[in-house]
């Protein structure tokens, strides 16, 4: 992890120096830069997610057709993926690459803020660029709040309480917004076979639990991390919007009827969603979906 973490800590410290020794600005700019650098991977992941979503009707038909024959079902699914040139792992790989980078970004903020003696001691070996010593330790105060500490809601002064509540609320709201805007609309509780659609249930649960969980993080972890969460969420929303993947209908709409799975970019609710183009040398229908409806 150090191979990623140490450059991150160094760059964060450089930004801190450039941006008037303002740690909040440094966190904001650094999070945006990392998000931008990760954009190709994020785009790939979104594209893959959309393609997978669009193949769902075909996959569902296969599931119905080969119910009880798992081996055959797997073979047919692979054949379908091959036919449409879709690699089911193509959505995972960007995630696998992004995950350690985002963890490193998160850790870089904690290490750079160096709240405790051990963290400050650790910092000495993480600064790869000469001359950064002059900025150590980084100024961890912002609006009278210590960025290394969790928000003191109720225990601190009025300003601390207000800013603390605002930060936690922003973390919860932006997490919810990002989830709602970037998650494809899913079918409700029942699938074609009448059984509960596990994906839909899970997604609904995630949509509730994730913002609350991040709210809990914001209450428990340092304020600096809350700022990172907020900026990262907002950057994620903007990226999705720029790619046309932000599903603003999701904010206000109820779950779709069974069998419909739409993504951002779907124009009319209930109409067929185009699935990925078939290779030109192949034949067969690629547009028939949602017939079960």
């Amino acid at each position: 992890m150090d191979i990623i973490l140490n450059p991150f800590v160094s760059i964060l410290t450089v930004l801190y120096g450039i941006l008037g020794q303002n740690m909040v600005l440094a966190i904001v700019v650094f999070t945006i830069i990392v998000r931008l650098l990760m954009f190709p991977l994020t785009a790939q992941q979104m594209k893959s997610s959309k393609a997978m979503q669009q193949l769902q009707p075909e996959l569902k038909k296969l599931q119905e057709k080969y119910k009880g024959d798992r081996e055959k079902l797997a073979q047919e699914q692979m054949r379908l993926y091959r036919e449409y040139g879709f690699n089911p792992l193509s959505g995972c790989l960007p995630l696998l690459i992004q995950f350690p980078i985002f963890i490193a970004l998160y850790q870089a903020i904690i290490h750079a803020l160096a709240a405790t003696p051990t963290q400050l001691l650790d910092l000495s070996g993480r600064l790869l660029i000469p001359g950064l010593d002059q900025f150590i330790p980084l100024n961890n105060m912002f609006l009278g709040l210590n960025l290394t500490l969790p928000p003191k809601i109720g225990a601190g002064g009025t300003l601390e309480t207000v800013v603390g509540i605002a930060l936690v609320a922003l973390v919860v709201i932006t997490t919810w917004l990002q989830f709602k805007l970037t998650t494809p609309t899913t079918a409700p509780a029942t699938g074609a076979d009448g059984k509960p659609a596990p994906g839909a249930g899970m997604t609904q649960s995630m949509g509730t639990i994730m913002p609350l969980m991040y709210g809990f993080f914001a209450l428990s972890f340092s304020i600096g991390i809350s700022i990172y969460f907020i900026v990262s969420n907002i950057a994620g929303i903007i990226q999705a919007a720029m790619m046309g993947r932000a599903n603003f209908r999701n904010l206000f709409s109820r779950p779709k009827p069974p069998g419909l799975a739409t993504t951002a970019g779907t124009k009319i609710e209930g109409k067929a969603t185009p699935i990925p183009s078939k290779p030109k040398n192949k034949t067969g229908s690629v547009s028939a979906n949602n017939k079960s409806k």
Partner: peptide, 10 residues
């Protein structure tokens, strides 16, 4: 993630 924060519980 709590473990990632390291120093908070060191």
């Amino acid at each position: 993630l709590g473990a990632c924060t390291g120093g908070l519980a060191e």
